[in-house]
């Protein structure tokens, strides 16, 4: 397919040389929801060499409005997002090495997952993971591109922490619960996802082709038609604990929660320290009498006493039907155990 990238190569700031750099690049994408889907598709079509995408969740009907890699079939089969994205992206561009990893990106696995890449792209839905990405990026001198949206509003910025600000220069710590709106409480408009993902991928292509990304923070409200960029060249903090003092508190697990409330979704995620593939056959026999159980190679779904427990092959569970941590812990202990 010599013609495949011809229009991108014709774009003079990329050209043949730039395309070759893109082709030999390795991109790590953390989170494959709406932003992650759209970014992954653009990166795959642009012809990156390798794309590793990581996600902890499975495809649900309410995703289809904006998460462009997923279909109704993925919903009905309950396919994990990383697996669904991998198969869709492979059909789009077989030249790209696509690797979907079904996992919860955490302090104890993020370095192994992201370190051997040229750039990290943010498709996450929470600040804790972004602070983790920031720690890894600063520690290993990797660029990363932040993107987030809610309602009709989105924001993005490319971090190259050596000379310029890192995330902790902008925000000393993640916001308290309740200070950031979520897509589950105020909704999300599909178009703003594409605007933010487009900006993120543009910065990725510039960085991969050895060109400076924008030093401005983009913020946009597609519904109200406001579009503003903020100069951030002077945002680097000389007191930053991360990029100045090299304290990687998130990466060292000091800021980690094992039980994660999935706000607005009526669910709690449980990430056990001891991880191993659960025996789905054994569990299904055990739980078959008390609830409804379905499973495939990736995950198991248990409907029991008004809760739905999704148990993944990496040992993690999402418990729907409560946002209360201790209640979720009890449900987990009762039906899944240690």
């Amino acid at each position: 397919m010599a013609d495949r990238y011809s229009r991108q190569v014709l774009f003079s700031d990329i050209g043949e040389v730039g395309q070759e750099k893109i082709r030999s690049s390795r991109v790590a994408l953390v989170g494959c929801g709406a932003l992650g889907s759209v970014s992954a598709e653009m990166l795959t079509r642009a012809g990156v060499g390798k794309l590793r995408l990581m996600d902890r969740d499975f495809v649900e009907e309410s995703n289809l409005q904006r998460q462009s890699l997923f279909t109704e079939e993925h919903v009905s089969k309950g396919v994990p997002k990383a697996a669904a994205a991998e198969s869709t992206l492979r059909a789009i561009n077989s030249e790209v090495e696509i690797e979907g990893v079904i996992t919860d990106v955490r302090w104890d696995n993020i370095e192994g997952l992201c370190r051997d890449h040229d750039i990290i792209v943010d498709g996450t839905d929470n600040f804790e993971t972004r602070f983790l990405i920031n720690d890894v990026a600063v520690k290993h001198s990797l660029p990363w591109v932040y993107g987030a949206c809610v309602g009709s509003y989105g924001i993005s910025f490319a971090f190259e922490s050596g000379t310029f600000a890192c995330l902790q220069c902008l925000f000393e710590r993640p916001p308290e619960v309740g200070t950031s709106q979520t897509c589950d409480t105020v909704g999300i408009l599909g178009p703003v996802v594409h605007v933010i993902a487009a900006y993120q991928v543009t910065q990725v292509l510039k960085i991969l082709t050895d060109q400076s990304p924008s030093r401005k923070i983009l913020q946009v409200d597609v519904w109200n038609g406001t579009w503003q960029t903020l100069g951030a060249e002077r945002a680097k903090s000389q007191q930053c604990r991360c990029c100045q003092q090299h304290e990687f508190r998130f990466l060292e697990g000091e800021e980690t929660t094992r039980m994660t409330r999935l706000c607005g979704r009526g669910a709690v995620q449980v990430s056990p320290q001891q991880k191993g593939p659960p025996d789905f056959h054994d569990l299904s026999q055990r739980l078959d009498k008390s609830g409804q159980v379905d499973f495939n190679q990736h995950m198991m779904r248990i409907q029991i006493e008004g809760y739905e427990i999704a148990l993944f092959a990496d040992g993690r569970s999402i418990i729907r039907g409560t946002e209360d941590i201790s209640e979720a812990r009890a449900v987990y202990a009762k039906y899944i155990g240690n």
Binding site: A34, R66, D125, V150, Y153, Q181, T182, I188, Q228, A235
Partner: peptide, 24 residues
């Protein structure tokens, strides 16, 4: 980009942005 300690004078424009965490 600025911070809370920045000085402002009449005629300036100050914008406030909340943290946005959604990845949709």
């Amino acid at each position: 980009y600025s911070d809370m300690d920045s000085l402002v004078a009449p005629g300036d424009e100050v914008s406030f942005f909340p943290p946005v965490s959604g990845g949709a």
